[in-house]
Amino acid sequence: MMLLQMIFWLFMTILLYVVFRRLYQLLPYPFMIPVLTCTVVLVIVLTSFDVSYDTYFSGGKWIDALLGPAIVALAFPLYQQRKLLNKFKIEILATVLTASLLGILSGYWLAVVSGYNQMIVSTIISKNVTTPVAMEVASMTGGEPAFAVIFVMIAGIGGAVTGPWLFQILGISNFLGVGMAFGGASHAIGTAKALEYGQREAAISSIGLSLCALCVSILGPILLKWIS
């Protein structure tokens, strides 16, 4: 019975993903991104049939096990884009550091000023980086990985939806500015949006998301220890 449930939820997750990925191609609105739609549907199904998260995760963990190797795989686009990386190394380094520091510090201060506890503060500092890294930073610093996922999704979806409008107000149109802003603030979801601007924007954005993930995973725990 346990084994059957495990297999059922594993295949259910993959099936929903395939369906919603197709749907997103037909209706490419930012709030239709598969990770959001799949999650909402699964949460509704699980809660209405009174299935516990532990039961679901017995199947889901087989997919989850691939997250670590997927982070390792980010080395591939970084290596592929090494020419662009080399040409703009100082510019990339400066913007990555700025994005990482501002993400950590602004998240920290806004949460502290609003009177949130240590758990929320530790979780919010890594919201601008890709989900698995944000989750690991959260669990290393006494935050809550499930909340990290929520914050990362708000930063990703919110940034992808409002980014074009923000760029218009501030007059940002250069590929390095647009790409780094999307990758640094809205990680993979922002990078998908950057692709709509062009290949160079998307390349810079994926460099930005990989390097910011690296930067925040190092700076986040250290800065958190210093300032608190």
């Binding site: 993903y17 990925r21 990770v35 949460v43 699980l46 989850d64 691939l66 997250l67 989900t131």
Partner: peptide, 15 residues
């Protein structure tokens, strides 16, 4: 990558 996030994001149901 989006598929790989789903099992964890479903954890929201506990919160």
């Amino acid at each position: 990558l989006p598929l790989l996030f789903v099992p964890v994001t479903v954890g929201i149901m506990q919160h």
